[in-house]
Amino acid sequence: MNSTCPPGLPHVNAMPPAEIVLAGPVTRDEVTGLCDDVRALLQATGAAVVVCDVGGLGPPGLAAVDLLARLELAAKRAGGRIRLRDPDPALHALLDLVGLRFEMEGQPEQREPALGVEETVEPGDPAV
């Protein structure tokens, strides 16, 4: 039995993420429509990620946290996830405070060390 790999690179899912811009304070009535928009974007584009630009979302508060939690749930139910673009530092801190972890655009993944960080060895440390 001979199984050879085809020449070239293996298929990589290079589907660009879908994008949605969240502007202004979002009312409770708009949340359902935005969740529907996220599900529709994932289904229509075939992307696995919807990038949510939250730079113009308004002052961070529990309404913004609720909105983002619902969008993430809608995305997960549709087989995807959301990634935040341009979050206010206060919103990022508030999300951490309530225990919600979102992938942030331009932020290294947790398993990757940040660029420019090197481990140092103290004199007298045993070799591992």
Rank of each mutant, 00 (worst) to 15 (best):
S3L: 09
T4W: 02
T4Y: 03
P6T: 10
P7H: 08
G8L: 07
G8V: 03
G8K: 04
H11V: 09
V12I: 13
N13W: 01
N13M: 03
P16R: 08
A18R: 06
A18D: 05
E19S: 05
E19C: 03
I20P: 00
I20G: 01
V21W: 04
V21P: 03
V21Q: 06
L22W: 06
A23I: 09
A23W: 09
G24E: 08
V26S: 12
V26Q: 05
T27Q: 04
D29R: 02
E30Q: 09
E30C: 04
T32V: 11
T32C: 07
G33H: 06
L34Y: 09
L34A: 07
C35E: 13
C35D: 09
C35I: 11
D36F: 08
D36I: 14
L41R: 10
T45D: 10
T45N: 09
A48K: 00
V49N: 00
V50C: 08
V50H: 03
C52P: 05
D53R: 09
V54G: 10
G58N: 12
G58Q: 11
G58L: 10
P59L: 15
P59V: 14
G61P: 12
G61D: 14
G61S: 12
A63G: 03
V65W: 03
D66H: 01
L67D: 00
L67I: 00
L67H: 00
L67C: 01
L67M: 02
L68K: 00
L68Q: 00
L68R: 01
L68N: 00
A69Q: 01
R70V: 00
L71A: 03
E72V: 01
E72Q: 07
L73A: 10
L73K: 12
R77M: 15
G79I: 15
G79H: 15
R81H: 15
I82F: 11
L84I: 15
L84K: 12
L84Y: 15
R85P: 09
D86N: 15
D86R: 15
P89S: 13
A90V: 13
H92V: 14
H92R: 14
H92A: 14
L94W: 11
L94I: 07
D96I: 14
D96L: 14
L97W: 13
L97Y: 12
V98I: 12
G99W: 13
G99A: 12
L100N: 10
R101G: 12
F102H: 09
F102D: 07
E105C: 11
G106C: 01
Q107K: 04
P108D: 02
P108L: 02
P108F: 01
Q110N: 05
Q110I: 03
E112N: 06
P113C: 05
L115K: 03
G116A: 01
E118T: 07
E119D: 10
E119I: 15
E119R: 14
T120W: 06
V121R: 05
E122L: 08
P126N: 02
P126L: 07
A127R: 04
V128C: 01
V128A: 09
V128H: 04
V128S: 07
